[in-house]
Design a protein around this nucleic acid. Structure first.
Lengths: 293, 293
DNA sequence: CCAGTTTCCTGACTAAGGTCAGGCAATGGA
DNA sequence: TCCATTGCCTGACCTTAGTCAGGAAACTGG
């Protein structure tokens, strides 16, 4: 990790912090504390439950309550009961609250415009592209991969998306019964493990490994959500799974894949996997790979 | 200005704001309010005059004074009189202040490291490159070009740097006497104008225009500081000078240049200038350009 | 229907950030 | 020499942000 890179990042942070400071000033230029402005923003056009607001903004319940009273007094939001639970409450913007939100939106747009205006068209394109790249890579760095119970709600959600995608991409379709999705405890220690990747708490990918015998592990269920692709996440996942395989005592990892999943194949080949003969009877597999650890 | 670009910028701002929030938390993890930490940082290893601190951090004089007292009480800074003006005071870090600053530095480094660590080497390079691009282009957008008295201190500074650079690049050297640096009021209205480009208050470039006759203007003294090159600043400057020339009544602008200044020539040609015959006796010029407005 | 939990509200309190007016000492120009 | 200005300090005051404890109402499982 060269020092020049770290210096670059710190310099970027400083430069951007100053800009962000300007952005916060623009929020304050409407004469409302930042906290209230953020709350208004978070309630949004469709409203929000107080519990959700508390969680998203990380607010104390008392503090949130008081800010909502203040916004109510200004006539910007109205807080009513929720249908399903009379304890829970739901905040929505009033007519003037929506107008205020629109005003904040316009301010943000102006700010963005003023950043583009002095630049030449070519420079504008470059700025926007570089911002997209920074955002994307910072998101990639923020993805956390952790072991997880394969029966947890998030794990099931990921596996469901995985199956749906596989089904849509296989030319012959995909039948969950045949595709051996039954799990039991094969993907939990000591037989195997299940990894879940999260970005800001939301699952964005998964992968599993299990022992076929004491010295051989099999990698399965590798999936990355479409929004998180192109960030090198699959590679990180693969490395973590190999690490676990080694930890479980395996000397060799193997896996199967389908010719429709081209990115997967090129990943495996880049990571040193070599094609081998069929080693299982998975009806949906048509390529088999193996790698010594 | 497409909406997609504005949306991109706003999304970038949001994403980065969250990161910056994390950064501020790391500042607070040393149990000192953010304001004091920033002040410590701004005083830096070489110390700083209180007036400069007030300006850089945008602080009220009373507030700054109190924070300095607090840092003094913690034994981190010492504030002494300045040599040249006994009213003004100068803050420096004590031994333990320097240690504290080093601790903050280490924290920032760790933060930057943790951003790079999850990424592949290729992704790290891309992130750092994209950050540099964003920083550079945001700086370019923050450059303000304004008309200025060519005798002001900042203008003189820029002209001095311009002359120094020209002298170092011309194969035969450059003699200010022969190079017609005498100005009088030729670069002030209504005979002409002088533009100064500033980035965060610091001059980073200049350019001048004057009328040769009622219908012809000449552009002179175009210079961009080396740190601000490659941002399209010269082009903006040129456009502004042409605008002023039009405003002064000119139908044609002309200029001379030296073959050593290759970037300048390609800029002029890109902007529609055509090479013409020698129209003055500037001993340092060997190319002459002209453009109809 | 009762006990325990959840959801929100209220009051009391604290720290941090920030502003304003006045004052003192040093400075500099008339 | 005098007076306006500059640079800093101090006291008084205010808002914003945030925490904590307790309480009322609604809900849930037994």
């Amino acid at each position: 990790m060269e020092n020049s890179k770290i210096a670059r990042i710190r310099s970027f942070n400083r430069a951007v912090t100053r800009r962000v400071g300007a952005l916060e000033e623009s929020y304050l230029s409407r004469g409302r504390p930042l906290g209230e402005a953020r709350l208004l923003f978070e309630i949004g056009r469709q409203g929000a439950a107080l519990g959700a607001l508390r969680q998203r903004l990380g607010l104390d319940s008392g503090y949130l309550s008081r800010m909502l009273r203040s916004l109510e007094a200004q006539g910007l939001v109205s807080v009513g009961a929720q249908d399903d639970d009379a304890r829970a409450r739901y905040a929505t913007l009033t007519e003037s609250g929506l107008a205020e939100l629109a005003a904040y939106d316009a301010l943000s747009d102006d700010q963005a415009q003023s950043l583009l205006k002095p630049l030449s068209p070519a420079a504008r394109d470059r700025l926007v592209a570089a911002m997209a790249e920074v955002e994307r890579l910072m998101a990639a760095a923020a993805v956390a991969i952790e072991e997880e119970d394969p029966d947890s709600a998030d794990a099931r959600q990921c596996l469901g998306l995985y199956v749906a995608e596989v089904a849509s991409r296989f030319t012959d379709g995909f039948d969950t019964a045949k595709g051996s999705t039954a799990s039991g405890d094969e993907f939990t220690r000591p037989h195997g493990a299940f990894l879940l990747a999260r970005l800001d708490g939301n699952p964005v990918g998964c992968g599993a490994v299990r022992l076929l015998d004491a010295r051989t592990a099999e990698i399965k269920r590798m999936w990355v959500s479409p929004q998180a692709r192109g960030m090198g996440l699959a590679m990180r996942m693969l490395h973590r799974l190999e690490e676990i395989a080694r930890d479980l005592g395996a000397r060799t990892v193997c896996l199967d894949t389908n010719r429709a999943l081209t990115e997967a194949q090129s990943l495996y080949e880049r990571q040193g996997y070599e094609e081998v003969a069929r080693f299982n009877d998975n009806p949906y597999a048509d390529r088999w790979y193996s790698k010594r650890l």
